[in-house]
């Protein structure tokens, strides 16, 4: 709850940043992101770029899972489609302008999203989750095949091109960071904006009750398909940036693990909220780093503890999902809301 949030016109009520907290919060975030490279080292920038890419993908998942209420465990496949589209485009055209490949990847991924969405009218809930999961397996299987190896590198993976801006190759993490962050911001804002429109509200209607939505004149099939396409497009963009960001990609990068991680980020952050994906991704991707620090303290820098690191990380990941589901089903966003409510109403509320 934001206090001092009175409006004198409908335009103000409908605007993208409909209260001062959002407005200044956004400005602060932009300033922070702009100056971060000045005092962050290379590793932090690597993490930041990775987080930004994940935020794009999770925002895409949010459009489908959080706003439209369709379950998907196959978004890793769209991610893969975006990444491999970028790599393959660069095989045919050298020195392609990165934004063009990004756009093409988005379109191709959206096309795949359409294809995945086709069963979504007949198939619901869990059956849809397993259908998307199957599609994920099948797409990755074809990427891994030997006959696809000239384009995708097969199971050995493939080296990815560097982004070229006007003859200037982007090599350092700082440059890549400044390439990714504006795209990430734009895409998050686009999602925020989407749900102010008729289209976005229709999706929310479908989530809340699809039969009622249909009675109100929303074509379920058209909207579900479009929702699939948009959410796939987000993941395609993330995949394309992923290909630019990392020196090589492997089919295993986009396995079921990625699909589930995306959903987990969404749950941890909070479904159906713009900030949910941001918080969730920050939490999930920073956990391994925190664990590294904690295990460094606990063992005094003993290398032997690292053997168990990945197992412990898995357990912590799993426990986070479960504990969030049990104790905070609305995700980090609801903690955030509660915190600001207390601050705004202090001392009348706790």
């Amino acid at each position: 709850m934001i206090t001092g949030n009175f409006k004198t016109s409908y335009a103000a009520d409908e605007s993208l940043w409909n209260n001062w907290a959002k407005r200044y919060g956004f400005v602060l975030a932009v300033v922070f992101l702009l100056v971060l490279p000045l005092f962050a080292d290379n590793y932090v920038l690597l993490l930041a770029g990775q987080i930004a890419i994940y935020v794009i993908a999770v925002t895409g998942v949010n459009v489908l899972v959080g706003y439209t209420g369709l379950m998907s465990l196959g978004h890793g496949a769209f991610f893969a489609v975006g990444a491999y589209t970028t790599v393959i485009l660069h095989q045919y055209v050298e020195h392609l302008f990165p934004l063009i490949t990004l756009l093409v990847s988005i379109v191709v991924a959206a096309g795949f999203g359409f294809l995945f969405g086709l069963p979504s009218l007949r198939v619901k809930g869990l059956y849809l989750a397993v259908a998307t999961l199957s599609a994920n397996f099948i797409i990755l299987f074809f990427i891994r095949q030997d006959w696809a190896a000239p384009w995708t590198g097969g199971r050995q993976g493939i080296e990815t091109p560097n982004a070229m801006f006007f003859g200037q190759e982007m090599l350092s993490n700082t440059q890549k960071y400044y390439f990714i962050i504006p795209i990430c911001l734009a895409m998050v804002l686009f999602a925020q904006n989407l749900f102010r429109t008729r289209f976005g509200r229709a999706l929310i209607g479908i989530r809340d009750n699809d039969h009622s939505a249909e009675i109100l004149g929303i074509s379920l099939y058209a909207y579900k398909l479009k929702s699939f396409a948009i959410s796939a497009a987000y993941c395609g963009a993330a995949g394309s940036l992923w290909a630019y960001f990392f020196p090589a990609i492997l089919p295993e990068d986009f396995s079921l693990n990625l699909s589930i991680t995306l959903v987990v980020c969404l749950i941890a952050g909070g479904m159906g909220r713009t900030l949910g994906p941001v918080f969730g991704t920050l939490l999930i991707l920073l956990i391994p780093e925190m664990l590294k620090i904690v295990s460094g303290w606990a063992t005094g820098g003993d290398g032997r503890a690292l053997i168990h690191f990945s197992s412990i990380r898995d357990i912590v990941f799993g426990l986070i999902i479960i504990l969030f589901l049990i104790f905070e089903p609305m995700g980090l966003v609801s903690i955030w809301d509660r915190f600001w409510r207390v601050v705004a109403r202090w001392p009348f509320s706790k």
Partner: peptide, 26 residues
Amino acid sequence: LLGQSSLSMILCTVGLIWVLEGSASL
């Protein structure tokens, strides 16, 4: 999770995948 939507219970079993896998290799 009893009484919550079945989706969240299903996601809980997804979380269990990681817990079980991690503890088995531990």
